[in-house]
């Protein structure tokens, strides 16, 4: 099983990373960005299916909310009617999850490839030899050791932060902050409005918790991996935008805000 994983996924990814590193100015950060783009392109059919599913779910929300109002006291009936609605529209409610599950091994392989090629610990570098395709041996010979410096980062170490505040001797962790923002934006874009207060509160909590968790992990993982998260997140945001627009990121008109807007509109002609 491990051999199959190595031959089919791990090995091609490691060799591709080597090629990208050699071809893209021997800059490992650029190679990581390049590999993330390549992997994103290869998994595009899966992404597209996931995005479509999100879009369909978002479009269906008015009907679902109507059902939730109608069957507020009968959860069993609500479930039954919701499922019926999905069937009628040909939507699989798990359609958005499956591509995510399939992509997970690819993400894991990407992470492993980055760590392996950086070879910061001797075991990683030692075992790297068996992964390199013989035609690339000569290339590997030339480029090892991989230059792991990029701007203020050492790609095999967590982001040390930058002293961005002129009057305070505090290091601001740049990558973790970007990861939090990109993850939050992505979460928000794919979110589907819900009327059930309990469910809405849970969704809200998750929308904050996940980016913070990602950011927290970024504080301790190699910044090369964080760079992958940022790149992947940005690509995700762009592709999501072209499929569903800003989605859940658009501010929802609350009754109070709607009334305020209405008053403004009324005042304007008089002014």
């Amino acid at each position: 099983m491990i051999d199959v994983w190595n031959i089919l996924i791990q090995q091609p990814m490691i060799n591709l990373l080597f090629l990208l590193y050699a071809g893209l100015f021997q800059n490992f950060a650029v190679a990581i960005v390049g590999l993330t783009i390549v992997v994103r392109l290869l998994t595009q059919p899966l992404n597209r299916q996931q995005l479509r599913s999100t879009k369909a779910m978002q479009e269906l929300q008015p009907q679902i909310q109507a059902l939730q109002k109608k069957y507020a006291k009968d959860r069993e009936k609500l479930t039954e009617e919701t499922m019926k609605l999905y069937r009628e529209r040909g939507i699989n409610p798990l359609g958005g999850c499956l591509p995510l599950v399939i992509q997970m091994p690819i993400w894991i392989a990407l992470y492993q490839a980055i760590i392996q090629v950086l070879g910061s610990a001797p075991e990683q570098l030692l075992s790297l030899f068996q992964f390199i395709y013989p035609p690339l041996h000569d290339l590997a010979r030339q480029v090892i050791p991989i230059n792991n410096h990029f701007l203020w980062l050492r790609l095999d170490q967590p982001d040390p932060g930058l002293p961005l505040l002129p009057f305070l001797p505090i290091l601001i962790p740049i990558l973790p902050i970007i990861v939090v923002v990109t993850t939050w934006v992505q979460q928000k874009m794919v979110s589907v409005p819900v009327s059930d207060p309990q469910q809405a509160s849970m969704t809200q909590t998750m929308q904050w918790m996940m980016p913070i968790m990602f950011g927290w992990f970024t504080l301790s993982v190699p910044s090369g991996l964080a760079l992958y998260w940022v790149t992947s997140g940005l690509i995700g945001i762009i592709t999501q935008y072209f499929t569903t627009g800003w989605g859940g990121l658009r501010p929802k008109p609350t009754p109070a805000r709607a009334a305020r807007n209405e008053r403004k509109r009324e005042k304007k002609p008089r002014g």
Binding site: M57, M83, P93, G96, Q187, V190, M206
Partner: peptide, 9 residues
């Protein structure tokens, strides 16, 4: 049906 938490979970 509670959809949001699934991909997150």
């Amino acid at each position: 049906m509670e959809f949001m938490p699934k991909p997150l979970a």
